Computed example of a mutant assay.
Amino acid sequence: MSKQNLHIELLEDLSEAPFELLELADPSREQIMSYLKTGHCYVAILASEVVGVLVLTKIDQTSTEIKNIAVSESAQGKGFGKVLLRYATNICQTKGDHKLIIGTGNSSIGQLALYQKEGFEIKNIKKNFFLDNYDEPIFENGIQCKHMIVLEKDLRK
């Protein structure tokens, strides 16, 4: 599987949203449905298979948030997440955004590393976000996911 053959497109029909991928990044179908209604969902396709997903939501006139980003387990570790992050950056810069925001759990060690390598910086922490907004406890990397770490990328650089 090569990154050069990856094709990313806007999903026009949200009934075709790849929930199995979206749920890799967010286990709450209710949360996913809420931000799909207000966001734009992009799918990454490789050899006619959807291997990645990205949901962008406009926050204000100059800011967009990545609400969901996920790569299928079979395609992880091949650079597709990085391609999706760069695609989001490009879209937002083209639209004149000044910043791109992404939130992830305190237990999402790999994602935190990737986001920082791609130019995102920790902005703040939403304490108890996952405890307050999700019915079931979430564990990742042997750590309970409690807090949302919010990262921001300055697109004017």
Rank of each mutant, 00 (worst) to 15 (best):
M1C: 11
M1R: 08
S2P: 03
S2A: 06
L6P: 02
H7A: 11
H7E: 15
E9M: 05
L10Q: 11
L10E: 14
E12P: 00
L14A: 14
L14H: 06
S15M: 04
S15A: 11
E16S: 07
E16I: 03
E16C: 12
A17V: 05
P18G: 04
L22K: 12
E23P: 00
L24D: 06
L24R: 08
L24Q: 10
D26M: 01
P27C: 07
E30P: 00
S34K: 11
S34V: 10
S34M: 12
K37E: 15
K37P: 04
K37H: 12
T38E: 04
H40I: 06
A44H: 06
I45L: 08
S48Y: 07
S48Q: 15
G52E: 12
L54S: 05
V55I: 13
T57A: 14
D60Y: 11
D60N: 14
T62S: 11
T62W: 14
E65R: 13
I66N: 06
N68G: 06
N68K: 06
I69E: 05
A70C: 13
V71R: 10
S72R: 07
S72D: 11
K78T: 07
G79N: 06
K82P: 04
L85G: 01
L85S: 01
A88K: 02
A88N: 08
Q93R: 13
Q93P: 03
T94Q: 15
G96K: 07
G96V: 09
D97I: 01
H98V: 02
K99I: 00
K99N: 14
I102F: 07
G103E: 04
T104D: 07
T104Y: 09
T104M: 13
G105L: 03
G105R: 02
S108V: 10
S108Y: 09
S108H: 10
G110K: 10
L112A: 06
A113M: 09
Y115A: 00
Q116I: 04
K117Q: 14
E118I: 01
F120K: 02
E121S: 12
I125L: 08
K126F: 13
K126G: 03
N128D: 15
F129T: 08
L131K: 08
N133K: 07
Y134F: 15
D135R: 14
E136L: 06
F139C: 05
F139Y: 15
E140N: 10
E140Y: 01
G142M: 09
I143F: 06
I143K: 13
I143Y: 09
C145I: 03
C145W: 07
K146R: 10
L155V: 03
R156K: 09
K157Y: 11
